[in-house]
Every structure is written in structure tokens, then in C-alpha cells.
Nucleic acid binder design. Structure first.
Length: 462
RNA sequence: GGACAGGUGGCCGAGUGGUUGAAGGCGCACGCCUGGAAAGUGUGUAACGGUGAAAGCCGUUCGAGGGUUCGAAUCCCUCCCUGUCCGCCA
């Protein structure tokens, strides 16, 4: 969420920065002026409304004083005067509510502005490599198999049964592969807590819409989320629907017809509960930065991804991820962004997995980010680098939406905090990378050294 | 899920229609006192918004949102949350 005052004071630089996002290349100026027109309308209203309110308040105080002095005539005269203001004030307050919510709606769907050093570009082909952060060299493996071929051959990865039970984009992991997933998560958490000072958190994975608004998934990206209805409300509504249409079945119901709001959403990332932990709070400057890490399942509808990565574990409706979140002062966030990326890369280094890092261009950056580094791991089976982590500095964008501020040592509120989030790492994709990079000619998979303690000392699977 | 009780400033807590943005206390800041400290003592100590060059002035906010009223922390409605008990349960 943008600060309307900042837009007002820097109209041209705001529009120029917004135009760096390709989706707003042509419309940024018009969008900005739409905001400013609404803002102007609101402020002009406030000047008139507040004048009336001030007169009403003064008169009301005098009424109280008059009544205390038993001056009923004087009180009556004042009451008559103020009564004349009532309609104007009530209408003004109603107009204020409408204008404020209209302005908020306009602001709520605008993405964050790219940082000055975020590269311009149209899509992922314009992302900029960071050679200094590259690690290892892509491993050449003859006749390299893809992770799902390896896992299915081992009998430890089952997409067919998952489809039977849950549909496409779900998987069963079994035996040592299930254990490996757990080992990877534990290893990541231990590294982040012990080496980088993150606090381990086990957060809720069902959240309210307000939390999703805070981190920016709502209102614009609702179709990417899974929602959880209360079955009690649904049953009640459904039984009434059946009275009208006796042939109705659960499967014939269009979700759009269900009349009540979804009570909860499943988190698409632990960024949501970790970041919103501090929502609506004023934090002491001395306690920043706050660093949280969590190992959670994540749920994504993957709307619009039809046909992409349909085989294997790359793109699932449910996957696990270790997330990193930092809450910082404005002055700390740039350094924290580098540090967070270091923490995520540390996992891949310890696993000895070749990877590279790119700075996302303005066309590939997420909604809330000012600047994003993607970490891409080498997958021999795909003969390609694939994203395994995304580390973003969101500046004060989420903090404004969550209303999270910082209080200085002098006791004064200084303004919104900065927030950052990054995967550290996507556990499912890390498992994929291990399978493909550590596959052996005999069909087995070597277990990376650092994971062996988490696997009961085993050195290979299969 | 049901019943009851609650939600007030950084914290505790008073306040059931009229100078209450809010007593009192704690904490914090600065000063006095002291050789230094403690104790004591004095003063100060909300956020957001509008307006203004600034000082300031004005508005809004007592969980959130509506409503009643000339006037709402106080009355009414809806929602959210917390506590206790009951029910259910990993």
C-alpha cells in the first residue's frame, strides 16, 4: 500500500516508478492522476466537514454548560442551531466513508514501486545474473533421469494414488523419501536458527483475509488461494438450497453461489502468518530486526499455470517450504536482504548443489517487492536451472497494509517498518534437486553428508 | 458449538449520556535534591488525518463497523477477539 501523501508530494516520480512495471507502462500516469483526483475530492470534503464538526462540538459543549446553569432557553437555542448542522454532517460523514474506501480500493491493487537498483525488463528473460553469488558448476550426468522417474522407480513417490485421492498436482512420498523431506526441513531450520539467528516458529496455516491483505495476496490474487468454508454454515445453506432444488448435489454447486464469506484461507506461504505476526503493532526500534523461520505446508491453486510443469513435484497444490521473514527498520532492510539471501544460499552450499542467483527485473517481480533475488538450482534431469528460492525486500509496502510501525528510543513513532521474506528453501524442490543431482547409475540416490545425521546415518536411498 | 463475563493510552486501571483524549498508578524522559546513587520531589509523556512557511488551530480515534442523540468510552445493532464453565476433540 502506498502512502497517498508521498504520491501527492511526488506525483511525477511516483508515476515514473510505477511505469517501470510493464503492466503499468502506459497507464501509470493515468492511475496516479486517478489517485490524486480521489485524494483531492476527499480532502476538499474534509475541510467542509471538519468545519461543521467543529461548530457542532463547540455548540454541544455550550449546551452542556447552559444546562448545568439551568439556562433552558439558551440550551434550546443552541440545540436548534446545531440541529441544522446535523444533515450536512451525516451526509459528509457518509461521503467521507465512501471516498476513503474508494481511495483505499484504488491503492490496494497497485503494486509496490521497484527499487532504484532493480533492473528494468519485460519478463524473466530480462533478469540479471549475479555472478558473484553463483556457486558450483552444473553437474553433467549421462542419461540423467528426472526426479519423478527416480522416485517412482524406487517405489517411494506416487502421483497416481495422490490423483485418486486428491487430484492432479499432489503426491505421496513414502519411506526414505518421506523421511528425506523431513530431514531437509529439519536441516534448514537448524541452520537458520543456529547460524543466522532466526527464531523458529510453528504458525497457523489457516488465516483470515485480513492477514492476506496485509502481505498483499488479497484483494488482487484471490484466484491463487484455497479457501476453507465452515462446514456447519455450508451444511445449513446446502440443506436450504435442496428445498428449492431437490436434485442439487454437493458436486453440482457452483462455489460462486455459496453466499457466505470464506472464513479462512490456506496459506500460500508462511510469509503470511510470519509477517502478520507484527500486524497492528508498534515495535520498539531496539528489538529490530526480528527474524522468523518456519517449516510449513503451503497451498496454491496454481490458477493460470495449466500445462506448466505438469509432471513431477515442481509445481504442486501442496508443498512444504522453510520460510524466512525479517522485520527491520528502514535503514536495515537493504543489508538484511543480502543477509537473508546468504542464509538461503548457505543451505544449497552445504548440500553442494550448484546454483546461480538473478536479480528479478521489474517485469518479473512480485506485487509487494521493491527488489527480489531468485536462487535457481541446477537440475540435471531437466538440464536447466529452476527457481528454488525467492528473497524479496518489500520496503514499507506490507507494513503500511498491516499498520506495523516502529517507535524510536525517544518514544516517538517513526513510521512503518520494513519487511522481507524469502524461501530458505522450498523443501519439495530441494528434494527434487537432491534426487537429480545425487542420482547414481544403479538407481539409488546418495544422501548429502549434512543430511545423513537426520537420516539415521544412512548414506543412500535405494 | 452453547452460556456467562470482558476488550479503555507503552503497561495496570477508573470512568453508564455534557469542557473526559480520558482520574489514579506503573513505566519512560528531563529537572531539583545528593559526593555519587537510591529514596524523595517537580514537569512532561497517544496515534492518525486536515490545514498552515512555522507556531499553532481543527477533526477523528476508548476492539472493529454501523445506528440513536444537539452531544456517546457510556445507550442500541452486527462482527472480531480474550477469559471462565459446559459440550466436542487431536
Amino acid at each position: 500500500m502506498h502512502d497517498i501523501k508521498a504520491v501527492r508530494d511526488n506525483r511525477d516520480s511516483f508515476a515514473a516508478a510505477l511505469a517501470r512495471r510493464p503492466a503499468y507502462r502506459d497507464s501509470a500516469g493515468a492511475e496516479t492522476d486517478r489517485l490524486l483526483a480521489k485524494d483531492k475530492e476527499l480532502r476538499e470534503l474534509l475541510v467542509r466537514l471538519q468545519t461543521d464538526q467543529a461548530r457542532r462540538n463547540d455548540a454541544s459543549k455550550l449546551i452542556g454548560q447552559a444546562k448545568a446553569k439551568k439556562d433552558d432557553a439558551g440550551a434550546a437555542a443552541l440545540m436548534a442551531e446545531v440541529a441544522g448542522l446535523k444533515d450536512a454532517i451525516q451526509k459528509g460523514e457518509a461521503d467521507q466513508r465512501v471516498l476513503e474506501s474508494e481511495l483505499r480500493d484504488l491503492l490496494a491493487v497497485l503494486p509496490n514501486l521497484p527499487a532504484a537498483d532493480a533492473p528494468d525488463g519485460a519478463d524473466e528473460s530480462d533478469n540479471v545474473a549475479m555472478p558473484a553469488r553463483a556457486f558450483g558448476s552444473p553437474r553433467g550426468i549421462n542419461n540423467a533421469r528426472q526426479h519423478f522417474e527416480i522416485g517412482e522407480a524406487l517405489g517411494l513417490m506416487d502421483f497416481e494414488r495422490a490423483a485418486k485421492v486428491s487430484g492432479a498436482r499432489f503426491v505421496y512420498l513414502k519411506g526414505d523419501l518421506a523421511k528425506l523431506e523431513r530431514a531437509i526441513g529439519a536441516f534448514m531450520l537448524d541452520t537458520h536458527t543456529e547460524k543466522f539467528g532466526y527464531t523458529e516458529v510453528s504458525p497457523p496455516v489457516l488465516v483470515r483475509d485480513q492477514a492476506l491483505f496485509g502481505t498483499g495476496q488479497l484483494p488482487k490474487f484471490k484466484e491463487d488461494l484455497f479457501a476453507a468454508n465452515s462446514p456447519f454454515e455450508f451444511d445449513e445453506w446446502f440443506s436450504r438450497a435442496k428445498v428449492k432444488n431437490p436434485n442439487a448435489t454437493i458436486l453440482s454447486i457452483d462455489p460462486a453461489e455459496v453466499p457466505f464469506e470464506n472464513k479462512f484461507y490456506l496459506i500460500p506461504t508462511a510469509e503470511v502468518p510470519l509477517t502478520n505476526y507484527v500486524s497492528e503493532e508498534i515495535l520498539a526500534e531496539a528489538e529490530l530486526p526480528i527474524r522468523f523461520t518456519a517449516y510449513t505446508p503451503c497451498f496454491r491453486a496454481e490458477a493460470g499455470a495449466a500445462g506448466r510443469d505438469t509432471r513431477g513435484m515442481i509445481r504442486m497444490h501442496q508443498f512444504s517450504k522453510v520460510e524466512l521473514v525479517s522485520i527491520t527498520t528502514p535503514g536495515q532492510s537493504n543489508a538484511e536482504h543480502e543477509r537473508m539471501t546468504d542464509a538461503a544460499q548457505e543451505i544449497l552450499k552445504k548440500l553442494d548443489l550448484a546454483h546461480r542467483v538473478v536479480t528479478l527485473c521489474t517485469g518479473d517481480m512480485g506485487f509487494g517487492a521493491t527488489k527480489t533475488y531468485d536462487i535457481e538450482v541446477w537440475l540435471p534431469g531437466q538440464n536447466a536451472f529452476r527457481e528454488i528460492s525467492s528473497c524479496s525486500n518489500c520496503g514499507d509496502f506490507q507494513a503500511r497494509r498491516m499498520n506495523t510501525r516502529v517507535r524510536g528510543a525517544d518514544g516517538k513513532v517513526k513510521g512503518p517498518v520494513h519487511t522481507l521474506n524469502g524461501s530458505g528453501l522450498a523443501v519439495g524442490r530441494t528434494l527434487v534437486a537432491i534426487l537429480e543431482n545425487y542420482q547414481q547409475d544403479d538407481g539409488s540416490v546418495a544422501i548429502p553428508d549434512v543430511l545423513q545425521p537426520y537420516m539415521g546415518g544412512k548414506t543412500k536411498i535405494g
